[in-house]
Design a protein around this nucleic acid. Sequence first.
DNA 1: ATCGCAGCCTGTACGC
DNA 2: TGCGTACAGGCTGCGA
Length: 276
Amino acid sequence: MPELPEVETVVRGLRQAGLAGAVIREVAVLWPRSITGATPGEFAAALCGRAITAVDRRAKYIVLALDDGRSLLVHLRMTGQFRLGEAAAAADAHDRVVLRLADGRALHFHDTRKFGRFRIVAHPGEALAKLGPEPLDAAFTPELLRARLRGRRRLLKPLLLDQEVIAGLGNIYVDEALWAARLHPQRRADTLRAADFVRLHAAIREVLTRAVAAGGTTLGTGATNFLSVAGRRGGHAEALRVFRRHGAPCPRCGAKLARMVVAARGTHLCPRCQRR
DNA sequence: ATCGCAGCCTGTACGC
DNA sequence: TGCGTACAGGCTGCGA
């Protein structure tokens, strides 16, 4: 499930492959619903002949800047992957969009569960303006985290999953960060104290930084699991402390890790380290 | 403001 | 081994 570290890994892979500078020669939309805001025909027409001038990430969005000033936003959602191949290569059964490039290569968007989305926008800054701060930016401080959560009566976990509160976290890294900060996922945000924000801030950054360094998290071996552009698995799965480890001992205190449902999501925690 | 739920999807894990 | 079913979850949109 791509979260910030996985999307960052994909973005770096696209850059390394030299996608910035590539020219789109032909567009095939194999699953129309993968495109939002335009018909597949409009989408293809808007991209044909365009050069990609930059590859960036904002939250869990991949932002491909185009030479006409517009941008192509891609959200991988659950199972989206990018793969590079030769232009003549046949599409895989799960390829939803194929961008054939002038250099003879093709960028395949592979998405088994069809949740991923492409959208062309005139101004990415405006389109993504509602998103919360980037947790790995220098501007993300404990004070900013506190300000984002101030006065909120919701529970910590749904707040941290809310992309308008803080951008880029998903189910895996929220559980990991809450464990590292020793905070219960159902703790009400307005009961946190200054020291809690400091710990939570540090935990979020540490967890994400390590996961980015490891190239993201790939959980199992199945076809729906995360792979980089180069087809590599993320190395962070072994570093997970609590996610899907219920029943195992807490790496910090030895108590049995638990699983519960919070915000309709499987949630993993140490009942001893993380008090409500 | 906040919550809960349905819907989008299909591979996987599970029970029998 | 094979079948059917529940589950996984990022995000949106709806009603409460």
